[in-house]
Design a binder for these strands. Structure first.
Lengths: 335, 335
DNA sequence: TTGAAAGCGTTACCAT
DNA sequence: ATGGTAACGCTTTCAA
């Protein structure tokens, strides 16, 4: 049936210990023996049972990835880059979409514990969830990505959201805008972005009080709704900073429906630089987070913790980059 | 350290056999004992080691999912729906992006074998790859999704691509178009769609010979390039049927750059109805594949094969649906 | 350089 | 109704 280490050993006239050694090239093995064993392995197309080796205390080489939603382009891209770097290092990914639901988070964390994942990468996580402390207590390597944490108790790779918000606002200010509205959902990253935005405004001595309120979900629909709301206000903005590309697209739709043009009448800046930024019409000026780099770094960090044990935590904030496309323009001056 | 079944047994003053039985509620266990054991399990927050139980011949409850690219919205949506149904049934997913690369495919299949995945779902696969036969030989449950196979040797859930192509063409024909170009990459599904398209044309007695050639990749860029090419031809089309949404968006961009308008001058139909169809400007008329249903069905099928053993293969072709948005319009008549 | 045997955490069979 | 124990496939220590 399934070929095991015993089959190989028998066929090669050696003990299973020897086979194990050539498999892991540990211990000292004669060239000749090694050759023979290798040959039989090839011949039998033997695939060592990882369950068994994991049982003896070796790694499982599986990493759990908790993300809010695999169907969200940003997270899909991020997952892809983590996957790639993981495979590079010999790991495979068990991906779980949590929908920002703490119950699901806990359920999946338990699943990953039972399956002895070598580590867990959190790209999701409720604000108040105690998942992280729990994992740390149980000495399970964790890393957080795309979501900065106020507390440096785990390895973290995130975007410098403050700087991202700053850049977005700065770009618009440089174009002459003073009335810049914001669309955002109330999560940690967005609060950082808002801080950056506020800093840029105050640096430029601008005081625009728009009727800001957080939205419930980061979808096109909410972007549209909120933008519509802003446009109807007494003192409407000349620019909108949306905290992700989806929201920005919703805003553009709202503006168009109102009979106005982007960027001629109103400028829009998004965030993330997902594929859809290119698809939007006009193509979206946005703040690019490098999912590639984030994925690579977070995988490297968790791998380090897995192989070298608990070490000092590093906290990496990648600098986002303004990508200027066609949705922003200097403010219309009286002509 | 890690709490095992022994810890639970000791704490509860029973044997590990008993603990095992309450865990799997197999055998006969007294109510009282069961209660006590359960209590200890809770108290110790015991998570059974799945590696160990897999080793004894039980399922691993992991399913491998091979897809071309997790960062592609269509596949990300599909993966998400498979994930959901999988979790429903107690499985978790090991996702591997193959980039349509046969070497990676083989590498990941080996990985999944070593990790004793209960089954493998193929959403990817080279035309000539022998992966499927290989898996069948080794009695590993396989299912294929989003990619019809000419041979009914495995469970398959796919889109009725012929019908999809037919509908797309029919829709355009009904709008009065006769010169309908196609943009497609040369893969099985697209050949089916082309057949459907041809059928619709011949049913309507239309004979439009456009300078068709397959493209290399299904990206916006290729869509744009091919559309540009068509537009420059001597007898340009009045409508374009692109075999996925990305290509359609590329086509729209090309048309706009040429100074023409969609749908006034040229109509465009896409395929997939991914999120981006809604984002396009104008919103894309497209053929919807239900990733939700596909995911659910394929997961159900593989689960059936895993639990009930090899059975008759079923081959499900889901009917795609035309979603009419704003990128198509009846052909301009001389006024 | 090689092999025997203990052990990893479960499950399942057979006793009791 | 409960417990003892072999077996699962591998790694690793210790002897030879």
């Amino acid at each position: 049936m399934k070929t095991t280490i015993y089959d190989v050993a028998r066929e090669a006239n050696v003990s299973i210990a020897t086979v194990s050694k050539v498999l892991n090239n540990s211990g000292r093995i004669g060239e000749e023996t090694r050759g023979k064993v290798m040959e039989i392995i090839k011949k039998l197309n033997y695939q060592p049972n990882k369950m068994a080796s994991a049982l003896t205390g070796k790694q499982t080489y599986s990493i759990g990835l908790l993300i809010p939603d695999l169907a969200n382009p940003f997270f899909a891209e991020l997952a892809r880059s983590i996957e790639d770097q993981g495979h590079q290092l010999g790991y495979h990914l068990i991906i779980c979409s949590t929908d920002y639901n703490p119950q699901k988070e806990q359920k999946y964390v338990d699943l990953l514990k039972r399956n002895k994942a070598d580590g867990i990468i959190l790209a999701s996580g409720f604000e108040q969830s105690n998942i992280i402390e729990q994992l740390i207590n149980e000495q399970i390597p964790v890393a957080v990505v795309a979501r900065d944490l106020p507390i440096p108790i785990v390895n973290t790779v995130s975007n410098d959201d403050f700087y991202g918000g700053y850049q977005a606002a700065k770009h618009l200010i440089d174009l002459g805008h003073k009335k810049i509205a914001v669309i955002a959902r109330d999560v940690w990253t967005n609060r950082q972005r808002l801080d950056g935005y506020n800093k840029a405004l105050s640096d430029a001595n601008i005081h625009y009080e728009f009727p800001f309120e957080y939205i419930r979900e980061s979808t096109i629909e909410w972007g549209k709704e909120m933008a519509t709301h802003y446009l109807q206000s007494a003192d409407p903005p000349t620019a909108i900073f949306a905290c992700n590309d989806l929201l920005a697209i919703g805003a553009i739709q709202a503006i168009k429906e109102k009979g106005l043009k982007v960027p001629d009448d109103i400028s829009v800046v998004g965030f993330d630089n997902t594929m859809i930024a290119n698809i939007a019409d006009p193509p979206l000026t946005t703040i690019a987070q490098s999912t590639k780099n984030m994925g690579k770094h977070v995988m490297d960090l968790i791998n380090k913790e897995i192989t070298e044990g608990i070490t000092d935590k590093t906290r990496l904030a990648l600098l986002p980059k303004l990508i200027t496309r066609k949705s922003t323009k200097s403010i219309r001056t009286l002509s």
